[in-house]
Design a protein around this nucleic acid. Structure first.
Lengths: 222, 222
DNA sequence: TCGAATAAATTGTCCTACAATCTTCAATTG
DNA sequence: CAATTGAAGATTGTAGGACAATTTATTCGA
């Protein structure tokens, strides 16, 4: 009886829609890390039977957002600082590859777009608009990865990003780190504009590692 | 009468076992890329109902071994040379990270093991024993990734390796390329032994890119 | 032989059922 | 009173039947 909103299927299968919705709920924080996810509750929420629900959960498991414990159910994954650090290392290398690839193939239009993001972030910093900064920041990163023309890379990178969202060290971006961060963005984009793969690769990797260190420092780690 | 199979069920769920078995069948080539996978056939093969089968297939889909087409079923994924090349690029960067991490933390015992692999491969080349070379080669790569102490890295790397196995360009290793390849292994291992992260990183990346180029050349591409 | 009509097979989903296991919570015991 | 036990109750894991929607195979007619 509930949720008639999921009538848009036909293109995507029901488990896929359910998967996306559960993912959305997890990433939005409605389900917190460690929370148990109840199948019956989901059948009520979506108005489907357990079959599609269980299929969706299987899919989510391989994406690293939930953990399945036999006979006990599925739980929203809980990331340790250690695990977050490991993800950052992998992310740095993937992002470095994205930067290198983009530097080798970026069009003038793409470069203009990239510069637009950086300028927008400069504006956001000047206006002390953290929300806007974060939005533009995410858009820049996503743009770079999406335009590197390597779907495998994009898929693995996005998977890591999602997992990192489980690690809410509630690190409120300080104006200070926004400035540092955007200086790094500037170097990344200029390296791409210069069509210098090595420089771009280094800049992209340095940027993620720098973000990692900022986060770890924030969390009181090394 | 505790059969081993029942014991396995304690630790791993039925869909997981099914998933592993299907994966084994795919990687062994029994199911070829493009083949359709029939649910009913699988229920007969495994003696289970469709539920666990479908769950296993969902899991396999996110691992990139199969593709799901709505209302048509699941098919063993078919990789284009282009896609294989993309996977190689990502693999190169992940492997570079593995090399770097291992160079920073390898124990004397680990280094000895690594040298053992390289020596074994030299022997295999001398004996023109391709099978043994391939076995040791796989073991070396796996060892490096497993001992880099980054589970996220290991998991993504292994996922790529599995996908690459779908791309059977039947590139029979030539003695020639075995020699080149093992020279690269030597440099990788010595860089690790020297605890030189930058050198190890470069050597590992170069090795994978070199393998990529050998494969692409074999396949008649650039 | 070709194409259309028909039959068969397959997927996607729901439902009910039930054993195995986990969780809860109250009664019992030390 | 705290800790333990143990019986309900809940939940997961799996089976199996059912059926609409869709795809694939087959047959038949032109």
């Amino acid at each position: 009886m509930p949720t008639p909103e999921i009538e848009l299927l036909k293109s995507r299968s029901l488990p896929m829609l359910i998967e996306e919705e559960i993912q959305r709920v997890i990433l939005s924080g409605q389900y917190a890390p460690g929370d148990r996810i109840n199948e019956k509750e989901l059948t009520l929420r979506f108005g489907t039977s357990r079959g599609p629900i269980r299929e969706a959960l299987r899919s989510l498991e391989s994406s690293g957002l939930i953990e399945q414990i036999p006979n006990r159910g599925v739980f929203v994954r809980r990331l340790t600082p250690q695990q977050a650090a490991e993800i950052y290392d992998v992310r740095a290398f993937l992002f470095a590859l994205a930067g290198r690839l983009l530097a080798m193939r970026a069009s003038e239009a793409e470069i203009a777009t990239l510069r637009g993001f950086v300028t927008a972030m400069d504006d956001a910093i000047a206006a002390d608009d953290t929300d806007r900064y974060l939005r533009e920041n995410f858009a820049l990163h996503e743009f770079i990865v999406a335009h590197a023309a390597n779907p495998v890379l994009a898929s693995q990178y996005l998977s890591l990003i999602k997992q990192l969202q489980l690690y809410r060290a509630r690190n409120l971006m300080l104006v200070d780190s926004m400035q540092v961060s955007n200086r790094e963005h500037h170097e990344m984009v200029e390296a791409i504009a210069a069509r210098d793969p090595d420089r771009a690769q280094a800049a992209h990797m340095a940027h993620v590692m720098s973000a990692k260190h900022r986060l770890m420092a924030n969390a009181g780690l090394s």
